[in-house]
Amino acid sequence: MTPAPTNLADTCNNLALRKAARYLSATYDKALAPAGLRMTQFSILQHLGAHGEMTITALADMIAMDRTTLATNLKPLAREGLVAVEPSAADRRARIVTITPDGLSRMKAALPLWKAVQAQFEEGFGVDKAAQLRACLESVLHAGFQPWAE
């Protein structure tokens, strides 16, 4: 029988991923700060700008986030008038999220900041390695888990 590793940090996939995610999140957050956005907020605005209005559930699925966490992240965006969250006319239980003109403007102002930090990462990490990393991480989302299943 093989003994258990003494330091699980050396073999834990989740820890390695979270460390890298915190590192990159802090880097992107710092880059986007002049636009008054954090990376999660920018991502939400970018998805809404690209795809139009959608339910909280659809947006949560698109960005791989549970609905409760997404709703929490939408509150400051709504307070700042960057998104509108309204009950659906078709289903009063569903909430529809829409990017506002101010939200679109803020996202567009942040885009050059995002492009700069994206280019900086790819220059330091490698363009091909970055593309491989994104593809590998996307495949993690299809590993068969259902973290938000009810």
Rank of each mutant, 00 (worst) to 15 (best):
M1N: 10
M1H: 12
M1D: 06
T2F: 07
T2I: 08
P3G: 01
A4F: 10
P5V: 07
P5D: 01
T6L: 09
N7F: 11
N7A: 13
L8S: 11
T11P: 07
C12W: 13
N13E: 10
N14K: 14
L15H: 14
A16G: 15
A16Q: 10
A16I: 10
L17C: 10
L17S: 12
L17I: 10
R18F: 13
R18W: 10
K19A: 08
K19M: 11
A20Y: 11
A21W: 07
R22P: 06
A26Q: 13
T27G: 07
T27Q: 15
K30C: 02
P34R: 10
P34A: 01
P34Y: 04
G36P: 08
R38P: 05
M39G: 09
M39H: 14
T40G: 00
Q41T: 09
F42V: 06
S43Q: 11
S43A: 06
I44Q: 02
I44V: 05
L45M: 04
H47L: 12
H47F: 08
L48I: 03
G49Q: 11
H51I: 10
H51Y: 15
G52E: 00
M54W: 08
A58Y: 08
L59E: 04
A60D: 08
D61P: 08
D61Y: 06
D61E: 10
I63D: 00
A64R: 14
M65L: 15
D66Q: 10
D66W: 11
R67Q: 13
T68S: 04
T68H: 07
T68D: 00
T69F: 09
T69H: 13
T69D: 05
L70C: 00
P76F: 13
L82Y: 15
L82T: 13
V83Y: 04
V83F: 01
V85H: 00
V85T: 03
E86C: 03
P87T: 09
S88P: 08
S88V: 07
A89L: 06
A89N: 13
A90L: 04
D91G: 07
R92T: 11
R93L: 14
R95A: 12
R95G: 06
I96N: 07
I96D: 02
I96S: 09
V97A: 01
T98V: 01
T98I: 01
I99P: 04
T100G: 07
T100M: 03
G103R: 02
L104M: 06
L104P: 05
S105W: 06
R106C: 05
M107C: 09
K108Q: 11
A109D: 02
P112L: 03
P112N: 05
L113E: 00
K115G: 05
A116T: 14
A116V: 10
A116W: 10
V117M: 13
V117F: 11
Q118I: 04
A119Q: 05
A119M: 00
Q120L: 14
F121W: 03
F121C: 00
E123L: 10
G126T: 11
V127F: 12
V127D: 03
V127I: 12
D128P: 03
A130C: 00
A130N: 02
A131S: 04
A131Y: 09
Q132H: 01
R134Y: 03
R134I: 06
A135V: 12
A135S: 15
A135K: 15
C136P: 03
S139A: 01
S139D: 06
L141W: 04
L141P: 01
L141Q: 05
L141S: 04
H142M: 08
A143D: 14
G144N: 15
F145P: 09
Q146L: 04
P147D: 04
P147E: 05
A149K: 12
E150T: 13
